[in-house]
Design a binder for these strands. Structure first.
Lengths: 347, 347
DNA sequence: TGCGTTCGTGAGAGCGCTCTCACGGACCCG
DNA sequence: CGGGTCCGTGAGAGCGCTCTCACGAACGCA
């Protein structure tokens, strides 16, 4: 096992189906049928093949299989963020978990890839289009990134997390009702007597950021107020971004009495800024976040927030992609899942 | 593009090398040479092939290539933890980042897989042994888990993060000097006048947990004191585990004046327990952690800790695996990287 | 001028599997 | 008892690529 492998060959010559078949005294075709679980095989042949395969530790060569079937039986979970941001945001964790479960249940392998630099994108494209995966679950799409279009053009089925900003004609996606959530949160703040309701947005090159802001604006205007841009401070879904955005907001409007933050992490940053300025969260200033990550309930004071159905989002993405790969669905489908306002101490 | 694909076929028939060659007016062999960057091709042929490939958006079928070369040009980064624990621990983040960079630099694709349930392990084994990856970087090996042995037996080169507890004969690994780190931290606590120096360990089914404890013990005995098991409280590298372990420790030994925690996350839990019991960290009780994750420096008070060279660990693992795959190294190699004591406010 | 050496190229085998097709035997029905 | 249907099986093609080998042209040197 530890003899130097010649370049380009496996260290150990792997047993082939041919050898299994010979050992079991059947043809390659029959051995293949048994190992793929085809029903029309006699019990005698089945036992012989399974025993032979076990005896020589046979593992099918997936490249050879893939070359014939055109399938790899694996799915990519692709996150276009730096590793740092991905690990910092429990949203990705929840999505990964639920997608992983759904994909595993279908008997496929989920491989997780993070693309943080432009050259990574090119390599991933060749990897996916080269047939290493049957489809891609793509998270965290920014701005005018054409990766989904390029994947689709190369024949790689792709399902996005979140509505893309552009080129949405033929793209498949699963999204939460971001605008509805923004409206819900803002309307609640207005209805509970707050007069100066501000918002710390997400990145505005992402649809989720835009939509949550649009929801805020809709709620403000539905309340018969003018939309005041100075009450809007742009963040980026991170705690640090939320903190900075809140500071600039407090400078412009020291009398702000409620803030809708476009993510829970941003809300944590907002809360820190408020506390540093001597304000009491939930009393002087109400705060509502977005996502309902587990940490939201554990904050002091606990964070009111708009709950995204993260497990359902991941599972729905995975199932939609699998249905598409199997040819059970053939026209681009977009799913929008409802959100829910969760009231705690901060509002 | 959106016509229903027949089961088992790609939605769009991908262009083949044959078509590129025909379009460029050369043979398949020459086209292949150009696309793989083989030097011995005339400029005229090269240009024609590249132009033809571009024109029809040719992407090589990696399954076909892999069938011939026996290589997939991708590496698995495998974490045997639940998704939650993996995301909660910045150690994995740092390892992923540095491994990803080293692998990308060599032109290979890194795929990241998390195995949290026993059935996942079986699927991964078939995936890896089936030739989808050329090697595996395996993190977070617990107890008697035989996965590395099984991978090696199936011909999949594997490099471990951390020395395995058993079957270490033929296994390759990269580790930090855990025992040395434990000794360093404990010796410092003893040298600075602390009289009741306790430890909150990691999981004792992992070598890192055992070794850091062994380092603690060695330092205690080197100081001429008896090794007192009641000063040892078993944790699991998590903050919650550290908190619980510290509570039970404080119950047994209210007069403890220094604690060596086997991970920074555990140290955070210890600090919280101390604070809850009214003790002042760094004053009443000194605390030293292990890892030096970024959050350690940001705590109040900032956490003294044993710094693991996380970027070097990940990069070394990746390079060792790549060297092995290329046949540049052929005998099992184990690398142990030095650690360093970083003193801050907590000790 | 003749022979060896390089260089660029193409023909063709074959990687390990799946899948279609054809075939023989067992079975059922009229 | 003959003609159908089924059922289990094997032969063989071929997926798209890489790589070895052989060949002719161009070049160097004696």
């Amino acid at each position: 096992m530890t003899t130097a492998p010649r370049k380009g060959t496996r260290a150990r010559l792997a047993p082939t189906l041919e050898e299994v078949a010979a050992r079991a005294g059947v043809s390659r075709a029959t051995a293949s049928r048994v190992l793929r679980g085809d029903a029309r095989v006699s019990e005698r042949a089945r036992d012989a093949v399974l025993e032979a395969a076990r005896a020589i530790s046979y593992v099918p060569n997936l490249a050879a299989r893939s070359l014939v079937t055109g399938r790899s039986d694996s799915i990519a979970f692709l996150v276009e963020e730096t590793e740092e941001r991905m690990f910092a945001d429990p949203f990705f964790l929840g999505m990964l978990r639920s997608a992983q479960e759904a994909v595993a249940e279908a008997g496929l392998q989920l491989v997780f890839t993070v693309v943080s630099r432009p050259e990574d994108q090119q390599r991933f494209l060749a990897y996916a289009a080269g047939g290493h995966v049957d489809g891609v679950l793509l998270l965290s799409l920014h701005g005018q990134d054409r990766l989904p279009q390029r994947l689709e053009a190369l024949g790689v089925p792709t399902v996005l997390s979140g509505r893309p900003l552009s080129g949405r004609r033929r793209l498949w996606y699963v999204d939460a009702d971001n605008a509805g959530g923004g409206r819900l949160a803002t309307a609640h703040l207005l209805a509970t007597g707050h007069r100066r309701v501000a918002t710390v947005t997400g990145p505005l090159d992402m649809c989720a950021g835009q939509d949550r802001l649009a929801g805020y604006r809709a709620a403000v205007e539905a309340d018969g107020r003018p939309y005041d841009e100075s009450l809007v401070s742009v963040g980026d879904f991170t705690a640090a971004g939320g903190h900075a955005a809140a500071l600039s907001l407090l400078e412009r409007h020291p009398d702000v009495d409620a803030i809708f933050a476009a993510s829970d992490l941003a809300a944590f940053g907002v809360v820190r800024a408020l506390r540093e300025s001597g304000r009491v969260v939930g009393d002087d200033v109400a705060v509502i976040g977005f996502d309902d990550i587990p940490a939201a309930a554990e904050q002091v004071p606990s964070l009111s927030t708009v709950r995204q159905p993260i497990p359902a989002l991941g599972a729905t993405m995975a199932r939609l992609l699998l249905d598409r790969i199997e040819g059970r669905v053939d026209r681009p489908r977009r799913t929008v899942l409802p959100v829910e306002l969760v009231l705690r101490q901060s509002a």
